[in-house]
């Protein structure tokens, strides 16, 4: 589903990614962990071209990201993204936030889109907020709406960029619960997070990144109980 080979990314002289390799299968939930500045967010953002990779191969859901002829906007409909800061549209109601893309992309009529949106909002537990505006919601609710908004386009892959980092601690659980459900339903997910509990419990695989490369690519059991690399050990000893 996602195939990344020798991915490089530089900002001016600063090389952030120094040859990342990853292979993610359909239905897999992969969690990316690592210290700040290790390049994990940049790696994730390269997958849907919010950042343009400098060099390498990236194929996501059959789209060759590095090919300038690829219709990136089409690709992004199939590859949803959830942001740390939610990025809900404050001028639209919750329902409108969710239905905007399917309606404007002419994938559904307004009625169909609203029906589906209500289902999604109920699924993530904010059905009663459909007619509210984002500013009236708590952080946890906003993030769940953001997930529903991504799901409205029926994506094949979902990318999560530190989805719980901007949340108050008591709201982290409700968001992780939604993500866990998605993983159990077989959604292909790439999650950049600091939530080690989630990684251990939900992830099929964990990528540990440091210094712009994937240092270790293992199952959660192996990486948390028996890390191979010194750097992994050092990092985990600090966060666990």
């Amino acid at each position: 589903m996602i195939f990344v080979k020798d991915l490089h990314k530089t900002y001016g002289k600063l090389e952030v990614l120094k040859g990342v390799n990853a292979h993610i299968k359909k239905g897999e939930c992969v969690v990316v962990i690592g210290p700040s500045g290790s390049g994990k967010s940049t790696f994730l953002r390269c997958l849907n071209k919010l950042e343009e990779a400098t060099k390498g191969e990236i194929v996501v859901d059959g789209f060759d990201i590095m090919d300038s002829k690829t219709d990136i906007n089409r690709m992004r409909r199939d590859v949803g993204m959830v942001f740390q800061q939610f990025n809900l549209f404050p001028h639209l109601t919750i329902l409108e936030n969710v239905t905007l893309a399917p309606i404007k992309h002419k994938l559904m009529t307004k009625e169909e889109a609203e029906k589906k949106a209500m289902e999604l909002l109920q699924r993530v537990g904010v059905g009663d907020k459909a007619n509210s505006y984002p500013s009236q919601l708590s952080g946890g609710q906003k993030q769940r709406v953001a997930i529903a908004r991504s799901l409205a386009l029926s994506p094949n892959v979902l990318l999560f960029d530190e989805p719980t980092s901007a949340l108050d601690p008591e709201m982290v659980g409700e968001v992780l619960e939604v993500m866990k459900q998605l993983a159990e339903e077989g959604m292909t997910m790439v999650v950049v997070t600091h939530e080690m509990g989630f990684a251990r419990e939900v992830a099929h695989r964990v990528l540990f990144m440091d210094g712009g490369v994937v240092v270790e690519d293992e199952t959660p059991e192996n990486i948390f109980t028996n890390p191979k690399h010194e750097r992994t050990k050092a990092f985990l000893s600090k966060v666990l």
Binding site: L50, R76, M81, N87, A101, S150, L153
Partner: peptide
């Protein structure tokens, strides 16, 4: 307007 709004829109497949 917050920069995240552009990313939010683009990530939904809007030009």
């Amino acid at each position: 307007v917050d920069k995240g709004q552009m990313e939010g829109g683009r990530s939904l497949g809007f030009s």
